[in-house]
């Protein structure tokens, strides 16, 4: 638990912004939770005031009693509102990478080690609609919250709010949290533009076009270990020996995506364009490599390679002038 000095406790910033960025997990306790009446609560207070004035005017003891009952109920409900937040544990989960301009989804893990069920816990990020979650004792849930992105790079979730108006909506308890955890934001894909370098056809020692999964090459006899998905079932139906469809062409075309090919654009546009090319190359099942100032990613393909390339683009920083 974080200890706060007296001066810290009375800082207004703590009230409006929370404690700043910190690593998770964070347990909500007294020093983090604030409570104020909601507009409904203020309206209720007005109703109570009118009731009390009426009771005084009519000298009606039952009226007094009823007004006091409702007032006390509102006071007691503060504890219930507080208890609905207190003790919850929050930590950041994974964040799936997105392209700039998309909404970045962050997973937040909420667990409830307390013996009470916590209802309608609302997680609010920026101007997004709140995400509500109920948690039974001892349970943990993962909630995905979204934050819009504008530019590439590592996007932190930033400050978010967890709040609750349980049980009666008269009071709102909230805590501001800002946990470590970033989402990789790839550059926004640029316009479709032909790749300046044509794909290089490279002969391959394992065959004319190599072996792969792309283009049908020929039939060959079945060997144990071959995937049944590649079996030529029609031949089986004709009671011929088992045949396997051989594909090839995987390693046929190789492509360098080079920063230096895009001299006419500024940095961000170049990165967007490279991003587009990475996506296109991956889609066309090409082997591609990425060439950036101060960084070179070797020929490869597959979603992991694609991620590495896009991440490199996302986090690219132009080295000090010398190279270009």
């Amino acid at each position: 638990m974080q200890t706060l000095t007296l001066r810290d406790r009375f800082r207004l910033a703590r009230f409006t912004r929370g404690l700043g960025t910190e690593p998770g997990p964070v347990t909500l306790e007294r020093s983090r939770i604030f409570i104020l009446p909601t507009t409904t609560g203020l309206m209720f207070a007005m109703v109570l005031l009118v009731m009390l004035l009426g009771s005084i005017n009519y000298t009606n003891n039952m009226g007094y009693m009823f007004s006091f009952l409702l007032g006390s109920m509102a006071l007691v409900s503060i504890f219930h509102t507080y208890r609905n937040l207190a003790g919850l544990r929050f930590s950041m989960g994974k964040a799936t990478p997105v392209f700039a301009g998309e909404r970045a989804g962050f997973d937040i893990r909420v667990s409830n080690p307390s013996p009470y069920t916590h209802y309608a816990i609302e997680l609010i990020v920026g101007g997004e609609p709140p995400v509500s979650v109920d948690l039974e004792p001892g349970h943990e849930k993962t909630v995905t919250v979204y934050r819009p992105t504008t530019s590439r790079g590592l996007q932190p979730l930033g400050r978010w709010k967890v709040s609750s108006t349980v049980p009666l909506g008269l009071f709102c308890a909230w805590a501001h949290l800002d946990l470590h955890g970033n989402c990789v934001v790839y550059p926004r894909p640029g316009p479709r533009r032909p790749v300046p370098q044509t794909a290089v056809y490279k002969p391959n020692q394992s065959g004319d076009k190599g072996r792969g999964v792309d283009d049908f090459a020929c039939f060959r006899p079945y060997r144990p270990g071959d995937s049944p998905r590649h079996l030529f079932w029609k031949a089986v139906a004709r009671e011929q020996p088992l045949l396997v469809k051989q594909f090839g062409g995987d390693r046929a075309d190789e492509l360098w995506l080079d920063w230096h090919d895009l001299r006419d654009l500024d940095t961000e546009a170049r990165l967007s364009q490279l991003c587009r090319w990475v996506l296109d190359a991956e889609q066309q099942q090409l082997r591609y490599g990425l060439h950036l100032p101060g960084l070179q990613l070797e020929m490869d393909r597959g979603s992991e390679h694609r991620h590495h390339c896009l991440q490199a683009l996302a986090q690219f920083r132009l080295p000090p002038p010398a190279d270009d």
Partner: peptide
């Protein structure tokens, strides 16, 4: 639960809330 928990505070208010002789208006 809320209303039962409110009862003791209600009693305190009922007994000690300064009473004035009505009507105010």
């Amino acid at each position: 639960t809320l209303l039962l928990q409110a009862l003791p505070v209600m009693l305190v208010l009922f007994i000690f809330f300064p009473r004035i002789i009505g009507p105010i208006w």
